[in-house]
Design a protein around this nucleic acid. Structure first.
Length: 469
RNA sequence: GGCGGCGUGGCCAAGUGGUCUAAGGCGAAGGUCUGCAAAACCUUUAUUCAUCGGUUCGAAUCCGAUCGCCGCCUCCA
């Protein structure tokens, strides 16, 4: 399996430090607001990496942090006249609601910054002891100039950055590039005790401290959005290198942005949709399908046209899945077992995903599979149960369990007893007798009427089936 | 200004030295099936990969130039 590593700028064979265990850390949300559909892309992409590693048989420990202390959170709390803890509680709850709706598999741990103050201050102390940090008036900064190789992840060099001169102005810093490890609290700001002052950690240190605590000083994968490469991940590498002896993360994976009209979706540009508002209009499967249709590292535009087209594409897969499911439920095993090479599709699916998680190619394999299955079905009156079961298994393992773009349990089969289904069943029977009498005016009236309320009838040789929107 | 990425059919998108006269999806056209539909299947829809030049027996893929777009360098997935 090959993974593109931002650190070495090339695809590398994935060799975990301690197979079959894999340790993975992904930068999670700052919980000061609902997350937008661009953030959702990162969470979904991480989810698919996680699921595919498990598909490959790895035992994955997956950590996603929740940043529940930061300037934006404080601002929000002040605006609303509540505590930062209340703000973070509200948006952590919302975060879990939304990722559940996106059918994201829960990570192993979701550590919170506020619950790791001991680890954070301990790490800062170590960095200080190793003389990579200095204190000024209760504030602690990382001394960038002391750290050899600063900039190796982002491909930047210190001199260029200084001439760029777009760094925060702060008299207390020796070098404008130095960044906060510990910030002294101002009046009314939340604070924690520390050897330096009552205050709070800087933005980057929590990730170093929490990844170390939960995954160790060396772990396999560290992932996040492209915009985190600099300064966030660069600074994490510096802090961890300065404060511990481990190798920190081995593989760095970075995700492309979700764009709106070719521009990055972001809170500050105001060109965003929250994940929850998009989820009100489109299914998790459609959203995940859209994300999977582009490679995780490429920019991807978001628009209603594009997601509509994803929805259409997905219907092709799910209607085949529904057909398979219905056949299995009927349990008719009188048909023949066709010559169908399932293995070939697994091989291709794995080859695609093994190549740096090439999900667009993996989806193409699923479409090939669906087309070929449909072709077999179209040619025969009936097929063996074994064929349908194998077909279901393939879609379950790939589209459902890895990509999460299909869920057999939620397919609108219209099966099972319910008043609604019984009524549709009754109408279908009435229509069948109208058809038998060649009363097409009445039969079409029934079909069109049902269509209007979201029920689509489909006639076939073996009878009429229906689907609900 | 520094660093990085991208430009493939109407749209989305994979492919990064020969199997590429370029996968897959959406859309469009024709056909099979059907009372008519729908779904499904079959066929068609890029001799061409921003432009120009070069390297090579061979380039969408490598090199150079040009044009266009985007990102990071400040909080951001």
């Amino acid at each position: 399996m090959q993974i593109y590593n931002t650190l070495t700028k090339k695809k590398e064979e994935f060799i975990p430090l301690d197979p079959p265990n894999v340790t993975m850390y992904v930068c999670g949300p700052t919980v000061y607001d609902y997350f937008h559909i661009g953030n959702a892309r990162s969470f979904v992409v991480s989810d698919i990496i996680y699921r595919y590693l498990e598909y490959k048989g790895y035992k994955v420990k997956y950590v996603m942090n929740l940043t529940d202390v930061d300037d934006k959170l404080i601002k929000k709390a002040n605006e609303e006249g509540i505590t930062t803890a209340e703000v973070s509680k509200r948006y952590i709850d919302a975060f879990f609601e939304d990722i559940d709706k996106l059918k994201i598999k829960r990570a192993t741990v979701y550590p919170k910054a506020t619950e790791h103050m001991q680890e954070i201050t301990d790490l800062i102390k170590k960095i200080e002891e190793n003389s990579y940090a200095y204190e000024t008036e209760g504030e602690v900064f990382f001394d960038v100039a002391k750290f050899d190789g600063y900039g190796k992840l982002s491909g930047k060099n210190i001199d260029d950055l200084e001439s760029g001169a777009r760094v925060e102005i702060n008299d207390k810093k020796r070098n404008p590039l130095d960044f906060s490890l510990w910030k002294k609290a101002k009046d009314g700001e939340p604070f924690w005790d520390s050897p330096w002052s009552k205050g709070r950690p800087g933005w980057h240190i929590e990730c170093s401290a929490m990844s170390m605590k939960h995954l160790g000083e060396s772990f396999d994968i560290h992932a996040g959005g492209n915009d985190l490469i600099f300064p966030h991940h660069e600074n994490e590498i510096a802090q961890s290198g300065a404060g511990c002896n481990g190798g920190f993360a081995k593989y760095w994976i970075h995700f492309g942005f979700l764009n709106i009209r070719d521009e990055k979706m972001s809170k500050s540009l105001g060109n965003f949709f929250t994940a929850r508002e998009v989820l009100n209009k489109y299914s998790a499967e459609a959203i995940r399908f859209l994300f999977n249709q582009a490679h995780y590292s490429s920019p991807l535009n978001y628009s209603s046209d594009l997601i509509e087209s994803s929805k259409k594409g997905l219907e092709k897969i799910s209607s085949t899945a529904l057909k398979i499911k219905n056949e299995i439920e009927k349990g008719n095993n009188t048909g023949e077992n066709p010559d169908f090479n399932f293995n070939n599709y697994y091989t291709q699916f794995e080859a695609a995903m093994d190549d740096n998680f090439n999900s667009p190619k993996a989806i193409a394999v699923i479409f090939d599979f669906v087309r070929d299955v449909n072709a077999v079905i179209a040619k025969r009156e009936n097929l063996s149960l074994e064929f349908y079961k194998n077909a279901k298994l393939f879609l379950e393992k790939t589209a459902e369990q890895v990509l999460g773009i299909l869920h057999f349990d939620e397919l609108h089969a219209g099966q099972g007893p319910s008043l609604e289904n019984d009524l549709i069943e009754l109408l279908t029977k009435l229509r069948a007798s109208a058809k038998a009498d060649k009363n097409y005016q009445l039969s079409d009236q029934i079909r069109d009427g049902l269509k209007e309320i979201g029920i689509t009838l489909q006639d076939s040789k073996t009878g009429t089936t229906f689907t609900k929107d």
